[in-house]
Design a protein around this nucleic acid. Structure first.
Lengths: 142, 142
DNA sequence: GTGGATGTAACAGAAACTGTTGCAACAAGC
DNA sequence: GCTTGTTGCAACAGTTTCTGTTACATCCAC
């Protein structure tokens, strides 16, 4: 499969909302966000819909509608975004069940779950240490 | 895409080779490994082929052929396996280039590369701290 | 030489993601 | 109430990746 870019799309949208908000623009439409990400507005609505269900953004319907951050950019971590977009875990176990008559086949899955769990824990710690405000600052630093 | 299980398959094969070696069986055929993983021998040959190119296993051709570890199981880390099987990175950037006329579109990719690089670094540290011997011990602990 | 195993190409099928179209639902403003 | 502009969502096509399978050339111990 292609490397999944959900976290990238969602973070880009949030950073753009944060910058617009700082510039005094209260809301952005999915079309305006899509213009920056360079993709289809429906993709953005799907992504921002995930973030809305997680409570990270708010949406206004009807004429003059659009999206805005539900919190300050400093208070939104990439870990929350990661959980909101439901990205796939980095490693998958066997697709088909191993041979349980083999001692390795019988015990390998819990053993790997332990390792993979530790990997995911440090990954989440790292994501929790970066906020949308951090991303926006690094983005504008060039 | 489906979660990719390359690291799982390769680690399973290595753990099985390590156990067989400890039991006095010098080599295993791809068919014997496939029987434990419960998949096709060609899948195993592809995976062990990656590990052979990385110098982690050795292969004997001809009659009585098969696979064996190139080093002690304590000296093979999951990070080496991860690099050998060329697993995809956990996060992908934009599939299409963002709009470079937008300040966020212009700077977001280097900013995300920084974050994703830090995530990958801690992930690699964690993988480097686990060996095939560790996995085999946890596998047989049940 | 023979037999048994690897190396690899080619192909089918499944799954996931992205992108696209179409349309119902909704609300602000007149 | 009507118009207008936007979101919400279903449905579908295209691409890519991974897994699994078959087939066959290659290799080497005996």
């Amino acid at each position: 499969m292609a490397a999944n870019s959900r976290l990238t799309i969602a973070t880009h949208a949030l950073a753009w909302l944060a910058l617009a908000q700082r510039r005094g623009q209260e809301v952005l439409t999915s079309e305006q966000v899509a213009a920056s990400v360079n993709t289809n507005p429906v993709i953005i609505r799907r992504s921002l819909g995930d973030l809305r269900r997680a409570g990270l953004v708010e949406v206004r319907h009807g004429a003059g509608a659009g999206w805005s951050l539900a919190r300050e950019p400093e208070a939104i971590t990439l870990l929350e975004v990661y959980d909101a977009v439901d990205a796939q875990p980095p490693f998958g176990l066997h697709r088909t069940e191993p041979n349980l008559e083999c001692p390795v086949g019988r015990g390998i899955r819990p053993a790997l779950n332990g390792v993979y769990g530790r990997v995911e824990r440090v990954m989440r710690q790292e994501l929790a240490g970066t906020s949308i405000a951090d991303v926006l600052r690094e983005t504008l630093a060039d």
